[in-house]
Structure formats: C-alpha cells, structure tokens
Simulated scan of single mutants.
Amino acid sequence: MEYLLLGFFTGLSLILAIGAQNIFVIEQGLKKQYIFLVCIICSISDLILIFLGIFLFQYFGNFFNSTIELILNILLFIFLAHFIYGKISIQKNKINFNQEVKNISLTGIITKTLAFTYLNPHVYSDTVFFLGNFSKNLLIIDKYYFGLGASIASFLFFFTIAYLSKSLSKYLRSDKVWKQINLLIILFMSLLALFVLFEIIN
C-alpha cells in the first residue's frame, strides 16, 4: 500500500501542473467536446508510458552495476533539481484558456490528443525516465503498486479537470491557486531529491 501511495503522489506531482496537454484537456472540458475520449486517451497513454519506463528499467536492471546505479541516481537528482527549478521559474506565468468552440471531427480530436501526449518531450523525461528510474530498486511487486498508483493519479487528474472544468473554472483560472499547487509540488519533489541525494552519498 505504501508504494501505491508513493506512486500516486509522485505521479500526481509530475502531472499536476499547467502544461500544454493539461490546458488542452481543460479547454475541451470547458467546450464540452469529446471530454471522455480525450480523458481516456490521455489516461491510458500515461498508464502505457508509466509501465514502459518501469519495465525498461526492470529489464536493463539486469545489466546494472554499482557505477551505472550511481550515474542513474546522479541523473535522477539532476532531473529533480531541474524539475524543481522549472516549477519555481513558472510562478510568474499567467494562465489563459481558449473557450472558442470550433467544429472538429472525431479523427481530428484523436489526432490532436495523441499529438499533445506523445509529441510532448516532457512525457518521456517525466513519465518514462523519472518514474522508471525512481522505481528501479523496488521489488517487482512494489514496482507494480508504484506504477498503478501513478496511473490512478493520471486517470483521476484528467477526468477531474475535464468534467469539473466548469465548476472549477474559478480556481483553474486563478494564478494564486496554481502558485500554491506549485509550492506543494516543489516541497514534495524536494523531499524526493533529498532521498535520491542520500542514496548517492551512501
């Protein structure tokens, strides 16, 4: 259960931010266009990428030695430091949502959703590399729980921001709310960074 919760909060910290994909999902919720389809594509894609990262590191873990482990932990720490710095630097950003409703075909919305998901370089660094690398030393059963927790966070997040976008619009548009969320993410990721640093030192 602890690894399920760890995966959930780690996954939520990675996804709980205003990026291109999340803005797109919120906008579809505000427009009431293909909400379920957009959410399910984003959520299943995250699940696939999360377990892809976990299985890749599980497979290549058979070839790891202490030097490779150290290099991966250093890269993990650098990633976390960069991630935290990025969260700090976007504190001044303004949020704008496009609510203009335009006709779009089923094929068009599927293509657009897949593009926002798989053409986003952060999805590979955050989801595949970070979650796979972070869970590399867990027992195989704990990796499943960790991945499941992160996947649940994605499903919950996408469906919540899309279907509740109208009622949450007051908060979704608030720079103050997102700044407070960012501070929580920075705190959580800083704790993970300290944990990784401890692993490097020892």
Rank of each mutant, 00 (worst) to 15 (best):
A20N: 15
A20E: 13
Q21K: 09
Q21N: 08
N22W: 05
V25C: 04
V25N: 03
E27I: 02
E27G: 03
Q28A: 11
Q28N: 14
L30M: 05
K32R: 10
K32T: 04
Y34P: 00
Y34C: 06
I35C: 13
I35V: 12
I35H: 11
F36M: 08
F36A: 13
F36W: 15
F36V: 10
L37E: 00
L37W: 14
L37D: 03
L37C: 09
V38R: 08
C39N: 07
I41P: 05
I41D: 01
I41M: 01
C42D: 12
C42Q: 11
C42G: 14
S43I: 10
I44Q: 09
I44T: 13
D46N: 06
L47M: 12
L47S: 15
L47G: 14
L47H: 11
L49W: 03
L49C: 03
I50N: 04
G53I: 14
I54N: 07
I54G: 08
F55V: 11
F57V: 07
F57N: 09
Q58D: 14
Y59Q: 12
F60V: 07
F60W: 12
F60T: 05
G61W: 06
G61I: 03
N62M: 09
F64Q: 10
F64Y: 15
N65L: 13
N65Y: 07
N65V: 01
T67K: 08
T67P: 03
I68L: 05
E69H: 13
E69R: 10
E69W: 13
L70Y: 04
L70E: 08
L70I: 05
I71V: 14
I71E: 12
I71Q: 11
L72H: 01
L72V: 08
L72Y: 05
N73Y: 04
N73F: 00
I74C: 06
I74Y: 10
L75G: 11
L75T: 05
F77V: 11
I78S: 09
F79A: 10
L80R: 09
L80M: 01
A81T: 01
F83V: 00
F83E: 11
F83M: 06
I84C: 09
I84Q: 09
Y85F: 15
G86C: 01
G86Y: 06
G86T: 07
K87M: 15
I88S: 10
I88L: 14
S89P: 02
S89A: 11
I90Q: 02
I90M: 12
I90D: 06
N93T: 07
N93P: 01
K94D: 11
K94T: 14
N96K: 13
F97G: 01
N98V: 02
